[in-house]
Amino acid sequence: MYTTTDEKGILNNYATEPQLYYAQYPTQEQQNRYLFQGAVAILFVASIFLIALGVS
């Protein structure tokens, strides 16, 4: 933690900044997994919608 003191004796505490890094483009395996998860999510939401439509 970085601390400074001004002329009146007031302390200011500053958090240490994390080291920055750049995001990496997902691999083909990760892209396929995202595609599969999206398809499952669409099927799940569609089934909930159809069940709600059938019940009402």
Results as ranks from 00 to 15, higher is better:
1 M>N: 06
2 Y>F: 09
4 T>N: 08
5 T>R: 08
5 T>Q: 12
5 T>N: 10
5 T>Y: 06
6 D>S: 02
6 D>R: 09
7 E>A: 01
7 E>F: 01
8 K>W: 02
9 G>Q: 06
9 G>W: 02
9 G>H: 08
9 G>S: 07
10 I>H: 01
10 I>G: 00
12 N>A: 13
12 N>Q: 14
13 N>M: 07
13 N>S: 07
13 N>D: 03
14 Y>N: 12
15 A>K: 15
15 A>M: 05
16 T>S: 05
16 T>E: 06
17 E>F: 11
17 E>I: 13
17 E>Y: 13
18 P>R: 14
18 P>K: 12
18 P>C: 09
18 P>N: 09
18 P>F: 04
18 P>M: 06
19 Q>E: 10
19 Q>W: 07
20 L>I: 12
20 L>Y: 05
20 L>W: 06
20 L>K: 12
21 Y>D: 03
21 Y>K: 11
22 Y>C: 05
22 Y>R: 12
22 Y>F: 06
22 Y>Q: 11
23 A>W: 00
23 A>P: 03
24 Q>D: 13
25 Y>C: 14
26 P>G: 09
26 P>D: 04
27 T>F: 00
27 T>R: 07
28 Q>E: 02
28 Q>W: 00
28 Q>C: 00
30 Q>S: 03
30 Q>I: 03
31 Q>K: 13
31 Q>F: 03
31 Q>P: 04
32 N>T: 04
32 N>S: 09
33 R>A: 14
33 R>S: 11
33 R>H: 11
33 R>Y: 11
33 R>P: 00
34 Y>F: 00
35 L>E: 03
35 L>T: 10
35 L>V: 04
36 F>P: 00
36 F>V: 04
36 F>T: 06
36 F>E: 02
37 Q>V: 14
37 Q>N: 14
37 Q>A: 14
38 G>K: 06
38 G>Q: 07
38 G>I: 04
39 A>P: 01
39 A>F: 09
39 A>N: 09
39 A>Q: 05
40 V>T: 07
40 V>L: 02
40 V>A: 10
40 V>C: 12
40 V>H: 00
40 V>G: 00
41 A>I: 06
42 I>M: 01
42 I>F: 02
44 F>K: 01
44 F>S: 14
45 V>S: 04
45 V>H: 01
45 V>L: 03
45 V>K: 02
45 V>F: 03
46 A>N: 11
46 A>D: 12
47 S>I: 10
47 S>T: 14
47 S>R: 05
49 F>K: 05
49 F>S: 08
50 L>G: 08
50 L>R: 08
50 L>A: 15
50 L>E: 03
51 I>A: 15
51 I>Q: 11
51 I>L: 14
52 A>L: 15
52 A>E: 04
53 L>K: 02
53 L>S: 08
53 L>T: 05
53 L>M: 04
55 V>T: 12
55 V>W: 07
55 V>P: 00
56 S>M: 10
56 S>P: 01
56 S>K: 11
56 S>F: 13
